[in-house]
């Protein structure tokens, strides 16, 4: 009996518990809640914050100019003057990784924000106005979602040409349909809420209702999605740059550091493979931990 573990959640029980006032979620600040209930989320937050600080204070942390080449230190091993070694062109790996955080986070955050804003607008319009607009938007979403994220980003990057801005655009477009879909779904349910009807009865304009009443009520899923997408955006940037289609030289992008002769460096200069990859994985791991916790906090039911 003692070891019995029941996952059953009888209806009556749920009612009884909520009647009993046991439902205390939402007390205290969101951050405290995160720390207490989601220690892993806190770790994720710390990782992300550390990377943001590294990016912000890159000039203070870097020991060398990340772009300065030096034939004498080509492929220098870690230790001595170069803490993590140097690449083929003799550039200091530590400093390049430090400055790489700027590229990675800037591209990741910017493309997530752009994708979420466009996606939210599209989803709101299609969910709130419905009709043929909705129909067209949904079909376009189907199309955009049918292509693998990386393929779509590759084609976008190829047709726009390599640059920082174009990479951001290329990565943000695949985010749009995901966000639009979620916002559309929650808009559909919020639209039917009594307070929307009340606002309409008060003579509020449709646009105003959509922005003042419907949009704020769909924000929780957007925040959940945005944190989940951040890691994916950072990974896409790394993949694009790895394939030579993302951030152009000489910007120090982690993905780019792994490209070109990486398979060769595996044998001759493994530090050139290990450290940039570690940086990518760690920051994505952090955003994933954070994303899970944010979802748990804002989304009472666990979603896939």
């Amino acid at each position: 009996m003692a070891t019995m573990r029941t996952l059953v959640q009888p209806v009556d029980h749920a009612v009884e518990l909520s009647r009993a006032g046991a439902n205390v979620t939402g007390s205290g600040s969101a951050l405290l809640h995160l720390a207490g209930r989601h220690p892993l989320g806190l770790i994720g937050l710390v990782i992300v914050v550390v990377f943001v600080l590294v990016a912000a204070f890159a000039p203070l942390l870097a020991t060398h100019d990340p772009l300065a080449t030096n034939a004498a230190t080509s492929l220098a091993a870690p230790g001595g003057q170069h803490m993590l070694g140097a690449d083929f062109m003799g550039r200091d790996l530590w400093s390049r990784i430090i400055y790489g955080a700027r590229i990675s986070l800037a591209v990741g955050i910017a493309s997530t924000v752009v994708g979420c804003v466009i996606g939210a607008a599209v989803g709101l319009v299609s969910g709130y106005w419905g009709g043929w607009v909705d129909l067209v938007v949904q079909r376009v979403n189907d199309v955009l979602q049918a292509l693998p994220l990386l393929v779509l980003a590759l084609v976008m990057a190829a047709s726009l040409g390599p640059s920082l801005t174009n990479t951001i655009i290329a990565i943000s477009i695949p985010v749009v349909p995901h966000v639009a879909r979620v916002i559309r779904a929650s808009t559909l349910s919020v639209r039917e809420m009594p307070f929307v009807e009340a606002a309409r009865a008060e003579g509020m304009g449709e646009l105003q209702i959509a922005l003042r009443h419907v949009l704020p009520n769909t924000l929780a899923p957007v925040i959940v999605l945005a944190t989940a997408q951040l890691g994916s955006a950072i990974l896409t940037e790394a993949s694009l740059s790895f394939l030579g289609l993302g951030i152009p030289e000489p910007y120090p992008s982690w993905g780019r550091m792994l490209s070109e002769s990486a398979a060769e460096y595996v044998r001759t200069a493994p530090w050139l493979v290990i450290f940039p990859g570690l940086a990518i994985s760690l920051v994505i791991f952090g955003t994933n931990l954070l994303g899970d916790a944010v979802r748990d906090v804002l989304d009472p039911r666990e979603r896939s």
């Binding site: 990486a262 595996v266 994933n288």
Partner: peptide
Amino acid sequence: RLVSLSGLSLPSFWLGLLILMAFV
């Protein structure tokens, strides 16, 4: 859950390179 989360965090190309490294 930690294993699966790290699985999602490792870029395939880096994991591939690590595998190559291990083989070397």
